[in-house]
Design a protein around this nucleic acid. Sequence first.
DNA 1: TTAAACTTTCAATAATTATTGAAAGTTTAA
DNA 2: TTAAACTTTCAATAATTATTGAAAGTTTAA
Lengths: 167, 167
Amino acid sequence: MTYEDAKIKFISTWGSLGSLWGINKAMAQIQALLFISTKPLSMEDIMEELHISRGNTSMNLRQLMDWGIVTKELIPGERKEYFTTEKDVQELTRIIAKERSRREIQPVIKVLDDVSSIKNDGTEHTKELIKQTRALHDLTLNADTMINKLVSQKQNWITKSLIKLIK
Amino acid sequence: MTYEDAKIKFISTWGSLGSLWGINKAMAQIQALLFISTKPLSMEDIMEELHISRGNTSMNLRQLMDWGIVTKELIPGERKEYFTTEKDVQELTRIIAKERSRREIQPVIKVLDDVSSIKNDGTEHTKELIKQTRALHDLTLNADTMINKLVSQKQNWITKSLIKLIK
DNA sequence: TTAAACTTTCAATAATTATTGAAAGTTTAA
DNA sequence: TTAAACTTTCAATAATTATTGAAAGTTTAA
């Protein structure tokens, strides 16, 4: 496999994986492209490499910046804006986990809390609803807390011993 | 909030959350409905409660069965098929984590491995591609292994002490 | 056997989501 | 100032994904 093949394969795989971490294809592909680039890229560069329109590029770059994954880089003497992505996978994971938690998990935890707090009228179906949604609430809250703690700690002794312990 | 409100809220929230665990809305809603039901439901029951067509119900039930989350339950003397879902959240988590790993994570790990194994021709961009995709590969593999181990162990002392340690 | 009671399949269609590209907006060098 | 070089916005459209519902298929009771 040549460099070009590998690059295309990586970008397209990472792109279709976007759904897994909750972003769209173009967004994931732009991030992938920047992730393996040795230097900041302009909008023009990105459009050309990925064969997508200017509007698409602009919108998705903005979203990546909203996530905090991509940052503008001003190159002295250049009029264009250039872009880079966080290159450290640990830090990238931390950002993504935090954002997903804030955007998706927290609201769900809230709803599960509300739903599981309805008045128990003693009927079987109410009891079941409360029991099951409370179980989901507790599980989701625990998992969310744990993942956030795990990714926040930068591969320190806890994480390391954890990984050993579990493997 | 009344029982009916709570039920509707739970089902619709869980449905829109489907994307988070990689299934579609109707699939997630059917699972949610079964999850809080006190007894097995027929296809007819599900169609009525969720206002979806027979075909849709049939297809999504099959998918849920493929995932191993929903099972057919035959009720003696009844011609219709009835359905139930796994009610234990721990077990549910285990199944979902395993399936997602198998369907989505493993193939990606494979691609990352392939891509990071291209011949290093010494150029800067090749070095960067290899370095970055290898970092992603290692991270993904570690995370996948860890999550699977974590959810497989049924809240035993390791998991419990882990949770304490990390909180 | 057969026909009623059910489930599955799948082409057509609807709904949703992503993408384009041109017009409007903004910034900067001169 | 102004006009060239850029970026953003957004209505129109394309692409993708989900849903319908009727026809075909299957199972079971009699």
